[in-house]
Structure formats: C-alpha cells, structure tokens
Design a protein around this nucleic acid. Structure first.
Lengths: 123, 123, 123, 123
DNA sequence: GTGGTCTAGACCACA
DNA sequence: GTGGTCTAGACCACA
C-alpha cells in the first residue's frame, strides 16, 4: 500500500480505510469483510496490523467475528451512520485546519466553499 | 520524497509543493529558491524532474532563473496572490468533491463546514 | 542530425526544423507529425530532446498530442500563418544582421536585394 | 571544424571562410595568412584540403606564396573589393532563393527587407 | 557552484 | 505502438 506514509500509526490508517469503505457503501450492513490475510496482502502491511485494526472495529461494535465463518459488518444502521458522521467530521476538520494554516479567516473559509459550490451548481 | 505516491506526475507534485511553500510564506517575493540539486536531493527525485517543475514556475513568471546565480521568486506580489488563490481553490475543490462522493448534498457540505467552525470558534 | 552544429540548443533547432516544414507546406493543418521515436532516429538525437521540442510547439498551440494516437498539426490556419511569418522574419533578420557585419549600410542592403531580383527577373 | 557539413566540397567551404575573413577585415591587404598546418588543425580538416583552398586564392591573385616566408594577402585593393562583392552577392542570392522556396514573391521579399530595416532603424 | 541541455534507457497509461 | 514521465549521469556556459 504505497500511500501508507502519513504520520498516523499504520493500524489507524487501516481503520480509516475501512471506515471510508463503509461510508462509500463498499462495505454494507451484514457484508463479509475480506480475511485478515487478504487485506494484509492487498494493503501491503503486516497481518498483525490488520488484526489490530479489525479489533478496533469490533470494540466499537462495527464488526463482528464469527469463528470459522469470518468477520461481518454490523446490521446496526445507527452505528454505521455514526461512522459516516465521524469520517466526514474528520475530513471537514482536516480541511478547515489546512485553510487556517493558509491564513484564511473562518469567514473566508465558509465563503470560499459556498462560492465554489455556487459556481459549480449544476455539475 | 517518501509521500510522493499520488497519481499526479512527480514534477507536478513538486510544482504543488513549491506553490504551497509560497502560500505558507516560506518562499517570499525575491527569495532564492533552493538549487535544483538541493531540492532534488531533499525530495528524493531526479534533478531533471525538479528542473521540469521549476520551468513550469518560470513559464508562469513566478520564478526567474539567473544562470550561475540561482533561481528567485518574483517580486510581483499579484502573481503570488494568484498562486495563493489557485492553491486554495484547488484544495476547496478537492474537499467538496470528496464530500460529494460521500453523498453529501451541497447544502450539507456548507452546513458541515459552518457548524465545525462555529463549534470551534475561539480556537 | 549531422548538421546540428550551431550554438543553438538542439531542441530549439528541432523546433526551427519543424517550423520550416510547416512553412514549406511539408506539414499541413491536421497532418500527423512523425512520432517522437521516428523523428529522434531520423535526426539522430535523443527522444527526450524531440519531446522537448514538440512540447514547445504544443505550448504555442501549433501541435496537439493524443496519447496513444500521435501528434497532429493544428487546423488553425492563423496560427500557421503566424509561424510562417515568424520563420521568415527570423531569416530576414539573420540576413540583414549579417550584411551589417559586412559593413553594408541599410540603403545598400535593400539596394543589393532589389538589384539581385531585378537581374534575375524571369527566373 | 564541426560545422563543415554542407553539401559544398570542403575545400570550397574553406575558400568561403577565407573570403569571409577578408570581407570582415580579419585578413587585410599584405597580411600573412596562417600556415597550412595551423589552418588545417584549427579547422579540423586535412592539410591537403587547406592547400587546395589556398591555391584557389592564389589563382585569383588574392594570395601570394613566398617560399620560405609564408602566404600573404594581396595589396591590390580592387581585388579585395571584388572578393567582398562576390561574398555579398552569394549571400544575397542564398537569401533570396530561400525566400522564394517559402513562396514569397519578389515584391514581398524586398518589402520584407525594407520593412525590417525601417522597424529597426536606429539600432 | 548554478542553471541548462542532452543522452541512454526504462516504465507507464491509453488505444 | 504512441505520447508522457522519470532516473542516472554527463557536459556546457556563466559567474
């Protein structure tokens, strides 16, 4: 996984990735999650790291392991909405903070977003 | 350049990086830009790639090369403001498009940004 | 490219050559330009050098690259007329300046050209 | 002599070069011409070729060999004026013919030269 | 030392 | 196959 280079611990990057898959609907309620080995291979990281990431999901009730069957996404829609909200908030935060580093005032930030959307309205 | 892993050609990533330095004020009007060789070494890319990136800046009048002396950022403040605007717009676009992939309506996007800023007001 | 021996950078000599081909009508609007590799082989220069020359043409809108298809001369006749004018002016300038080095006055230069043409009238 | 690549026989190119030196005043009446060996070395051609070129000059009375002393440019000013005229006419011819290849009418050629000079008047 | 050019050769995406 | 990018490494002119 070539782009695993941020400062964030790799296992948390894997958590973020799984969250993103959920938000994008690539992992829906009840879906089976790829096996640890497959994920590890696909992402180019250590299976232990994937294991740790999946445990995080389980602790939050987002995934459940069924011995001998595999791991599955929860059927609990509210939990997934929570995940979705969390992912979006994180992105918004990241964006706003970056804009602040560019010395934009908060008013300017909203104004910029508003303007961009207005200009592109209809796309 | 460890984090150079996007799909964007490396030389355009270098252009983006230099633009960011300008926006952040780490490169001010009249400043000397690090030498081709130094940039190449620091970023872990080939000098030719850096050269190509810097020529892009020159074509836009943002930098000027003086053979035997080095490269310098233009004194023309308007050009730099243009760069700043461009960088910001690109970031806003990236953000908005990502939000749309998450199936947020345009109203929701502005609302989220607005809300985040309001909650953090004072930080 | 045996006769590529001037002080002009090779890639600019290639640009000049392509311009001349356009002026001579050997490259007409819409025509496909020989491939980078063919040009490089024919001229005895490196493909990268040809690439650089062709990019110069593109920046001026004289040629367009279609990845996987090839490069084509613009259909825009005005641009080509511009090229033609530029090539001719460059030749005239070169000629006049050389004549000045030979200590000919400007009046003598025009007189010489005029006389040569008059004597050869009918050729 | 890297630029010895035209279609003209090399010894005639050497003749042309010597003529040019005369026109430019780099070889004045009575001046000693560099030795065959020096010329050959400087121009990167065979001494026999230089020899042949110098014989052409001698046949026209432009240069004289003095055994044991070297070769000298004639003191006869008229002959040198003739050379000058010849060199210039050759250049004019070359220029006009090239312009004709570019499909310029004779009127356009003189017009172009006239215009270029007018625009640059004062340089 | 600094930017500019050039070669040789590789790998990629698009068609 | 075609254009586009990139590396490694060399050589040049200017200062």
């Amino acid at each position: 996984m070539e782009s695993f280079d941020g400062k964030l611990p790799v296992y948390l990057q894997v958590v973020d990735l799984l969250f993103t898959w959920i938000v994008l609907g690539q992992l829906s309620p009840g879906d089976q999650i790829p096996t640890v080995r497959k994920l590890a291979a696909d992402l180019g990281v250590n299976p232990n790291t994937v294991q740790k990431a999946l445990q995080t999901l389980e602790e939050r009730g987002i995934a459940t392991a069924v011995v001998g069957r595999g791991r599955f996404i929860t059927e609990d829609g509210n939990l997934l909405i929570e995940v979705r909200d969390e992912v979006i908030t994180k992105q918004v935060a990241k964006f706003v903070e970056k804009m602040k580093i560019y010395s934009l005032s908060e008013a300017e930030i909203t104004q910029r977003v508003h303007q961009y959307i207005k200009e592109r309205m209809g796309d």
